[in-house]
């Protein structure tokens, strides 16, 4: 097992990962450009939140959530270049997740709707992109909004 196949996570301890469980961000993630490999971890009781954890002992992770859980009407325009960048997945193979900033109190937490993470689940190729219609959304969407309370679309 190479060091690349190991993920270290506070809650999960040390994990051995198969190659197909590792997502590859060839440009890293803005702010963490040198770290290229991540995995997705979850716990039943934490759903719908997932951990996007760096692979290789970096002690780095992000909490991510489906942006549609927060804003059911979310319509990100992802550029053809960005879709091509991760190998042009079909709609079924495309995973879209949004980064969460957990605050105190928890209800004040925000979600970045401007820069979702897109993953090609077939190849594992991934990228955090900036949506083309960024002016319609905010990088600090309150996680609990009037809209999401009623669940209207």
């Amino acid at each position: 097992m190479t060091p690349n196949g190991l993920a270290v996570n506070q809650e999960y301890g040390i994990l051995n990962l198969r190659a197909d469980q590792i997502y590859s961000f060839s440009e890293g993630i803005p702010g963490f450009e040198k770290i290229k490999q991540y995995c997705l971890l979850y716990k039943e009781e934490e759903m719908p939140f997932l951990h996007l954890s760096a692979v290789g002992g970096f002690n780095l992770e992000f909490i991510v959530v489906s942006p549609w859980m927060v804003l059911p009407s979310y319509k990100p325009e992802i550029s053809d270049e960005d879709i091509a960048f991760i190998g042009a997945p079909s709609k079924n193979d495309l995973i879209v997740l949004a980064m969460v900033v957990i605050s105190e109190p928890l209800g004040a937490s925000t979600v970045n709707m401007v820069a979702p993470v897109i993953i090609n689940s077939k190849t594992g190729s991934a990228k955090q992109v900036v949506i083309r219609n960024l002016k319609e959304y905010t990088s600090q969407q309150p996680i609990i909004t009037e809209n999401s309370q009623t669940g209207t679309t």
Binding site: I29, G31, E46, E61, I102, L106
Partner: peptide
């Protein structure tokens, strides 16, 4: 900047957020 903030999130309580 948002990513750096996100990486500092206290993950201990996210089951409450759920």
């Amino acid at each position: 900047k948002e990513n750096v903030l996100a990486s500092k999130s206290d993950v201990q309580n996210i089951h409450h957020l759920g």
